[in-house]
Amino acid sequence: MADVVLAPLRGLEDFLIGSARFQIPNIKDQEKWSNRVLNNLLYYQTNYFLTALILFLIIGLIHPVKMVFGFAAISVAFGGFVYSTNNQWKARKFKRDHPLVSVVLILVGGYLLVYMFGAVIVFIFGIAFPLLLILIHASLRMRSIKNKITNKMEYVGLKRTPMGIILEGLGQEQEAGS
């Protein structure tokens, strides 16, 4: 992890304006489109992380209470799922020993989930909207020579970046010559 390097922040001129060239991808050629998206994710990764953070914070400032409650609701649901799947025998024993409490907990949990639905939607929108914008930019932005050279250095292993690690973890490794 010590050899991970944060990619430089690309200028607005390169990222959006001026020399930036955009073109609708040929969706029939999935391999070429995927290659463009992956390479743009690597090249503009710092811009994308910053964009996602700014949009998440803006949505959080517009709906702060819903963001906090949405995060809490998702965290509790996830934690409950992990706990119950890891401790199934304890959950079954508790349901058998305390059936009335179990029913009340299920009803209260269901009510809270329905009550918190709006907050959960705002929180998920706070995550999904920046990701959608990043995918659109990475799909439409054509690659430059500098983009291609930088991505080759990432592939050869001269540089390791956070986005490279994330993509590798998702099984989206670059191929030689892409």
Rank of each mutant, 00 (worst) to 15 (best):
I134Y: 02
V82W: 09
K146W: 00
A72W: 05
P25C: 04
K28Q: 11
G79K: 07
Y155L: 13
Q174A: 07
R160K: 15
I145S: 13
V101F: 14
V4T: 12
L113K: 10
K93D: 12
E168S: 15
T46C: 08
A128L: 15
N40W: 01
G177C: 03
S144H: 00
L133T: 08
S178T: 06
L100Y: 06
D3I: 11
L167W: 05
S84K: 11
E175R: 13
F129H: 01
A52F: 06
V68K: 14
I124E: 00
L41M: 04
N87H: 15
I17W: 10
A73I: 06
H63F: 15
H63C: 08
F22W: 05
L105R: 08
L170W: 13
Q30I: 07
P25G: 09
I74Q: 12
M1R: 14
F22S: 06
D3A: 06
E13T: 13
L42W: 04
L158I: 12
L16C: 06
K159L: 08
V104M: 08
Y83A: 12
F81I: 09
F69Q: 12
V4A: 12
K28G: 11
G18T: 04
P162A: 04
S144G: 02
S144K: 00
Q174D: 04
I127S: 06
R10E: 12
V65E: 14
N151T: 15
A128C: 13
L42A: 05
Q45W: 03
A138D: 03
G79M: 00
P99F: 12
G126L: 06
F117N: 10
F81P: 00
K90N: 02
T150I: 07
N147Y: 00
K159A: 07
L41C: 05
A138K: 00
F22Y: 08
L38D: 11
G110H: 02
R92L: 10
L12F: 12
F81K: 08
N86F: 09
K148H: 08
F78K: 10
R92A: 11
I59R: 03
L57I: 14
K28Y: 09
K146Y: 01
I149Q: 04
K93S: 13
L133I: 15
A73N: 04
V120H: 01
K66V: 02
D29E: 14
W89E: 13
I17E: 05
L53Y: 01
Y83R: 05
I136H: 05
F78W: 07
K66W: 15
D14H: 06
Q30D: 14
Q88V: 08
G79V: 05
F71S: 09
A20Y: 00
L42H: 11
S139F: 03
P130V: 11
Y155W: 14
H137E: 05
P8V: 11
G110A: 02
L158R: 13
N35P: 01
I124A: 09
Q172H: 08
K32Q: 09
Y44T: 05
